[in-house]
Design a protein around this nucleic acid. Sequence first.
DNA 1: CTGAAGTTAGAGCACACGCTCTAACTCGGA
DNA 2: TCCGAGTTAGAGCGTGTGCTCTAACTTCAG
Lengths: 172, 172
Amino acid sequence: MLRDGYAAVTSRSVEAEAGLKLHYHFGTLDDLFIAVVRRRGESNVGLLEDALASPDPIRAWWRLASERRGNALLVELSAAANHRPALRAEVATFAREVRRMQLEALDSLLDDYGIDRKVFPPALVAASLQGLAFASAYDLVAGFDTAQVEASEAMNRLLDRLEKRRGARRKA
Amino acid sequence: MLRDGYAAVTSRSVEAEAGLKLHYHFGTLDDLFIAVVRRRGESNVGLLEDALASPDPIRAWWRLASERRGNALLVELSAAANHRPALRAEVATFAREVRRMQLEALDSLLDDYGIDRKVFPPALVAASLQGLAFASAYDLVAGFDTAQVEASEAMNRLLDRLEKRRGARRKA
DNA sequence: CTGAAGTTAGAGCACACGCTCTAACTCGGA
DNA sequence: TCCGAGTTAGAGCGTGTGCTCTAACTTCAG
């Protein structure tokens, strides 16, 4: 999937590559995709949980969100979900769950970071961070070259400042 | 394309819907997609140019970037570009050009808005704004329901503040 | 009215897909 | 050793694709 794109995942290519009978073990192709989403999604929920509970939650979240392989996979799965309603529903479930976790975490974290929730409510922060990471990954996967490196370096510096501020505030 | 997704754009469906012979008028299917990107892309470059030169440039840009139809089309075209190298190259050209325009505009605008370019350099601002808009559109198109409405309302309020600040600074 | 240029209808080709089916194979327990 | 459960190989079906091709139709200048 990462090598050739989701469209290259056909019953024949899977059987050739994996050396087993797809329809015997998984049922339909949809079932295969859904199994992938479920596996990956559950592991991701776990990782996000850890990140949000870590000592520098937003930085950890950002690191997770900008992770390259995971994002490439997400891009492919989202594209595949375009033509597979069942898959789309499964992806939607995880997207909602992940966003819910982020909003809940931010709700108590924003004050720690000294972020004014009137100006930057959780929904905006979450959507921006995740959107920046996703769009950067998208452009990278597609080879668009839209100054993602510069942006992500600036983001890392911004996170340094934020985490430092949080550290200072929590000490006080 | 917007109704049924890019995968529904087949030689036969196009001929049925448009009532003309695709291969006679356009050549290959790739050529059709590329023509669409080129038309849409050029018009979009023009619109962005106007937006960035308008009295409230960032708000206008944001409005353009969150425009629903355009974004849905972008999502479809990006997905289609996944399996069509020629198309991907064409989309990449416009993505780069658009980003270049944004960076150039921000380079002189940031001071007007009183945004500290040490913390928020043009690349970060551009990628965030565009990323937020794109990801929101993506989630909307896919029906993911990840609090995009809340986020976009907050973004509008943030833009109100920013544009107001710019107005005040320019008067002084 | 003639005839050439532009355009279409529709059959057809080679290919790939998802999925099903049957015959064969492997292999561990009795 | 034999049996039966688990698994595979590989042919096959129906469908849809991109694209080509030829014969027919339309249009309009001369």
